[in-house]
Computed example of a mutant assay.
Amino acid sequence: MTTSPNILCIGSVLWDIIGRSASHMRQGSDVPGRIIRIPGGVAMNIAITLRRQGMHPALLTAMGLDPEGQELLAQCQRMGMACDHIYLSKDLPTDRYMAVEGGNGLIAAIADAHSLEEAGDKILTALLDGPLGSASAPYEGLIALDGNLTVELLTQIAASPAFAKADLRVAPASPGKAQRLIPFLEQGRATLYVNLEEASLLCSASYDSAEAAARGLLDRGAFRAVVTDGGRPTADGTKDGILVQTPPEVLVTRVTGAGDTFMAAHIAAEYRGASRDAALSAALTAAAAHVSGETPYD
């Protein structure tokens, strides 16, 4: 890619293995469907949508030098990602994510991001003391960060002077990892993209709406909180007030990657200069196109 990156995507880049059926499913269901393998992971899903929106992301992640990693790296390069700063390990296998989706939504998923966690701050070398920035010369652009990193590394990032001037956008990756974002509440740094369940876990509270959850996150110290709730209203909360919009009604055919698509479209719209209202609308429209199947896999 010859164009300089205008956003860094930090976190999981792996193979998504997704089984999908139109049938409603429950524990123990055995139904016909399709199984696909595609490049995925939160950071990768965000980068894919950013490329679709005309932006030029660089990936900061870990991959193995195994055949799966070499194939994944080639795919990332083909899709237009800047891959110069990816940490390539001869000892760690390439990570994977496996999900089963039915007509009634996500049935179960397992994220195996152990290699990313074991790589630790090696994935940040270019940003902490390298060509992208350092503590004395912080990176000043957009960063999309996902919660698949360890608590220790996320805590380091939240307080690091190397990130002090960045426009930092953070997502937890899953409800099970939501509490990893507590350091960003404590530091009052970053825009948090969470769903209603994740917001409740972060605040140790129970909320009945995205608007209430956004207010709760702001009260806990969040710089900015964008909270989704499936097909119910979404909220964007800042010190200037809470904006609420209702997503378009669509037939849901897939759910994996919807939150990542929403986040990326929101970032891209604001990068282009859209107002808060217009950016939220653009993000909800992009997420609706994704879950309806209108947006194809690359």
Rank of each mutant, 00 (worst) to 15 (best):
L202Y: 00
I267Y: 08
V170Y: 03
A158R: 14
A62F: 07
L251W: 02
Q27R: 14
R254P: 06
G259P: 04
K90S: 14
G259F: 01
A199E: 00
L145F: 13
P5K: 06
T49F: 03
S21N: 10
G188Q: 13
T61G: 04
V291Y: 04
Y97G: 02
C83D: 02
G120R: 13
L145R: 09
Q27L: 12
S115K: 06
G231E: 10
P32Q: 07
D16N: 13
M1D: 05
H114V: 11
R224L: 00
C76Q: 06
A135E: 12
T228A: 08
Y207K: 01
R180F: 07
P93R: 10
D208I: 10
L192M: 03
S21G: 08
E186G: 12
L88Q: 12
A99D: 04
I110E: 04
R78N: 08
A99L: 09
Q75W: 11
A264G: 11
P131V: 14
G133F: 09
S160F: 09
T261A: 15
G105H: 03
P296M: 05
Y271P: 02
G216E: 00
Q70F: 04
Y193E: 00
T94R: 03
L192R: 00
G130D: 13
D30W: 00
R220A: 15
D16F: 02
N195L: 03
